[in-house]
Amino acid sequence: MASFLEKKKTAAQIVANARNAEKVSAQELLAGVFDDFLELHGDRLSDDDAAIIGGVAHFEGKPVTVILTNKGKSAEERLRTHFGCPEPSGYRKSLRLIKQAEKFKRPVVTFVNTAGAYPGQSAEENGQGEAIARNLLEISSIKVPVIAVIYGEGGSGGALALACGDAVWMFENSMYSVLSPEGFAAILWKDSSRADEAAEIMKLTPEKLLEQKIIDGIIPEPRSHKRLFKGVKRVLHEELEKYQKLSVSELVEKRQQRFQRF
């Protein structure tokens, strides 16, 4: 934590780091943080979205449901996942697995790195808005803890749909905003090249968001993945312990208070 406070990065640097292609991937996180993992596919309606990976795993020996957004590593994978932008079927798969977790009383951990929900013709036709709306509605009263970690980009409603649970943590090099700095600059100054300036105004860095209590904490991001995973595990351990101790009504009540502040 000390090293993080020492070298202060500009908002534009954090945006660049958050989008870095070398960033830890969903697959690396799964292997590094969890003891094992079984992927569960499909939304049971029509499709299986590659941009969202979901399944069950052991975390420190205990069962959890894990949901991650996936940008993909190879060029083909990236095209298939729309560079990590989920289709409506991705959000429906995610909600299906969260409801399943509720049935079997295991907590949910989500890892978010998405520029936003996929804006495409197919997404519109399949009800992107409805899919996100349903996630927000159902997760608000889900009876198990839902802990989110934003590990790169946290873009708008597409990120919120996976980060509307009990706690939200962010990697040191990640961002969370209502639209991209480019989009913001384009609307404000009609000039998307002024994105760096926009990033500063938007208060989208983990530090600023923590000040406003939008998020619950920051996970330092050392170069070594081993140390990074150790940090993630420590946070998940503490948060899961904290929220699993609560009764169902306390849990839901606390989640509601979390958002009523804003």
């Binding site: 509605l137 009263s141 409603g157 989208l204 939008i214 009523q260 804003f262």
Partner: peptide
Amino acid sequence: GIFSLMQMAKISQAVQE
């Protein structure tokens, strides 16, 4: 900014109740 985004979750809770 982000406060606007948080309204989506806040309203959804009230709708669910």
